[in-house]
């Protein structure tokens, strides 16, 4: 089951790399949040406890409800253009993603022989981290940067479930809080600079320095 969910997660990354709508990014973030929640709830079906549900519940509220809504609100409030502004062709981007995914999967397959990890969730998580960074590198829009950052964080989460024995719950909750704060700060920053800078491009951010 975990493997199926991880592969679904990977497929969402492919969609991410070819789409050119800002809305689609938000949908993917929701979808990924949902996947992660299910992934976390799944082990507890047999031995249920309220305490174990804290993390999935928080995850669901933050990733599926609050953050996507907030991003949508920013898009509406600031009237951001609905298309992303890529710096390379979507097809090239897709090739890049596929290439890195292959490398990561092969590498983690080799790793799994020596270390105690579950290959598919581990590799999917790692791929998401790489794709998140790619999104940040190859997209201009600031709001897409936030989305890329969130994809990266989702990757870390999946990665965490693959090596669950290493990462205690407190740390995962900590990262969750971190992301929450970062997204809000980014939102506030975008709101603030919208009055001075017309576009929400990172290319013009350089002008903000003193």
């Amino acid at each position: 089951m975990q493997n199926v969910l991880s592969i679904l997660f990977c497929l969402s990354l492919f969609y991410l790399s070819v789409t050119s709508r800002v809305k689609a990014y938000v949908t993917i973030l929701r979808f990924q949040g949902l996947l992660l929640t299910v992934l976390l709830v799944f082990p507890f079906i047999h031995h249920f406890s309220i305490f174990a549900l804290i993390l999935p519940a928080t995850l669901f509220i933050v990733k599926v409800i609050v953050i996507p809504r907030y991003i949508n609100k920013i898009i509406l409030d600031l009237d951001i253009k609905r298309v992303i502004e890529p710096t390379i062709q979507p097809f090239t981007f897709l090739l890049l993603v596929i290439f890195s995914m292959v490398v990561v999967f092969v590498a983690s397959n080799i790793l799994s022989k020596s270390a105690d990890i579950e290959t598919i969730p581990f590799a999917s998580g790692f791929t998401a981290i790489v794709v998140g960074i790619f999104v940040i590198i190859f997209r201009k829009k600031l709001i897409i940067h936030v989305a890329g950052f969130l994809v990266l964080e989702n990757g870390i989460f999946l990665f965490g479930t693959a090596v669950a024995s290493e990462l205690p719950m407190m740390i995962e909750l900590g990262t969750l809080l971190d992301i929450f704060v970062v997204v809000f700060l980014m939102g506030i920053a975008i709101n603030k600079i919208s009055s001075t800078l017309a576009g929400f491009d990172v290319t013009v951010l350089g002008r903000l320095k003193d």
């Binding site: 590198i137 290319t203 350089g206 002008r207």
Partner: peptide, 12 residues
């Protein structure tokens, strides 16, 4: 560079 994306690429 003034653009943060280059730095992220360097880090990667």
């Amino acid at each position: 560079y003034t653009d943060i994306r280059y730095y992220i690429a360097f880090i990667l």
